[in-house]
């Protein structure tokens, strides 16, 4: 039940999947909202603080998720899936890992460009590696912003594809993850 089987995802994989999904969407929404907050808004300093904390925690979650993925069987694709569907799903899943890690790294590079560390919920601090490139916060900021749109675009395709399998193809694809 906890572990994956060749037919189904286990509870741990489901939990990690949905927690990642909620966290990524929440980070995106908060990120969009917080950069336009008024200077006198009560959230002006709190929102970026929690955005950074949750982002770092997501990084830890993703490491756990990768460890779980490689130490576990991956369910085989449902029989009705075409080869191009299987291949593009694989590509999309790989891109998710890549994009999420790049988001965390670029976000980290914004906040640590001046040697400041990132405080995570007051529990611990992630130290800075210093300034690695000129105007690092600007370059990292642009990458962070654009990759966020790419990531949410990919997530939308991912979600639409799951719904298409569920309602149009009426197959097991979505049910295996719920």
């Amino acid at each position: 039940m906890l572990k994956n089987s060749p037919k189904k995802y286990g509870l741990v994989a489901k939990f990690l999947h949905w927690l990642t999904a909620i966290t990524v969407i929440a980070l995106f929404a908060v990120g969009l909202w917080m950069v336009d907050l008024d200077y006198y808004d009560a959230w002006y300093t709190k929102a970026p603080y929690y955005h950074k904390s949750v982002g770092i925690l997501l990084g830890l979650l993703m490491v756990l998720r990768m460890l779980w993925r490689i130490s576990n069987t991956t369910p085989v694709p449902p029989k009705n899936h075409q080869l191009w569907e299987i291949q593009s799903a694989r590509l999309a899943h790989g891109l998710f890992y890549l994009l999420i890690f790049l988001m965390i790294i670029s976000g980290y590079l914004i906040s640590t460009a001046d040697n400041r560390s990132i405080d995570v919920m007051g529990w611990f601090e992630i130290p800075s590696l210093g300034s690695l490139i000129d105007n690092q916060e600007d370059t990292a900021g642009l990458i962070h912003e654009w990759l966020a749109y790419v990531l949410i675009g990919l997530a939308s395709i991912h979600g639409i594809a799951a719904l298409k399998h569920h309602f149009y193809d009426k197959d097991e694809t979505l049910k295996r993850m719920i």
Partner: peptide
């Protein structure tokens, strides 16, 4: 102007 430096990268990014 891009060389503005207030000793805080996030603030400098905002100022730019």
């Amino acid at each position: 102007v891009t060389s503005i430096d207030s000793n805080h990268a996030e603030r400098d990014k905002h100022l730019r």
